[in-house]
């Protein structure tokens, strides 16, 4: 049975979600998204999942928001080289939340034991590892592969063929640099 606090948290999550979809200004959208994450974190906490709550608040609420702001500032149409006023304040705020939550996580992981898990006496980390070793490994590799994917997708482009000097282009064609991409 879900407690009243839990229901309130879920309601808040939904309200912020609707706001995130409905709002136009991207900064507000990201704020709403982060708040929605925090509401979900509260729900997780009420459900007795303190660690999941910490992860939701730090990773989904904090880290993802910072990434959003970063990409927004990178891809803004009136691009400026630095993060602008409002964005900077929000990024700072998100950073502070992130750090605070990280501290909380440290505290939590080192002291709290799980209230109603199958192995209530073991520290969470050990229980977690014992229960899902392959899953943990897979996610570890997944993180690595994600980093590879990101590094590939953000590789700066070589100038397109049409913009190359004619000599350059033929040289590239000779060395096979242009068509090699056909296969791999």
């Amino acid at each position: 049975m879900t407690s009243t606090v839990g229901i309130a948290a879920l309601a808040a999550m939904l309200v912020f979600a609707v706001a995130a979809v409905g709002l136009r200004d991207m900064i507000r959208v990201v704020s709403a998204l982060a708040l929605s994450s925090l509401a979900l974190a509260a729900f997780l906490f009420v459900e007795g999942m303190a660690y999941a709550a910490v992860f939701e608040a730090t990773v989904a609420g904090g880290l993802v928001s910072i990434l959003f702001l970063l990409v927004i500032s990178m891809t803004d149409d009136d691009h400026v080289g630095y993060v602008r006023g409002r964005t900077a304040v929000l990024a700072g705020g998100a950073g502070a939340v992130f750090l605070a939550a990280l501290g909380l996580a440290w505290q939590g992981l080192s002291t709290i034991t799980l209230a109603e898990s199958t192995a209530a006496t073991e520290p969470f980390v050990e229980w977690f590892w014992a229960a899902h070793p392959l899953d943990v490994l897979l996610v570890t590799v997944l993180v690595f592969v994600g980093v590879l994917a990101i590094s590939r997708l953000t590789t700066p482009l070589a100038p397109p063929e049409s913009e190359r000097a004619p000599g350059e282009a033929s040289e590239a064609a000779e060395s096979g640099a242009v068509e090699t991409e056909e296969i791999a």
């Binding site: 999942m49 660690y51 992860f55 990773v59 891809t75 994600g146 953000t154």
Partner: peptide, 29 residues
């Protein structure tokens, strides 16, 4: 509450996927 491990891993996976989509956004831009 025993699903906590699953939830934690899912949060991480979601974060990776979101980051990859953002990298795609950079490539698109």
């Amino acid at each position: 509450a025993a699903s906590q491990g699953i939830v934690v891993l899912l949060i991480l996976v979601d974060a990776i996927v979101v980051a990859v989509v953002m990298a795609m956004a950079v490539a698109v831009y």
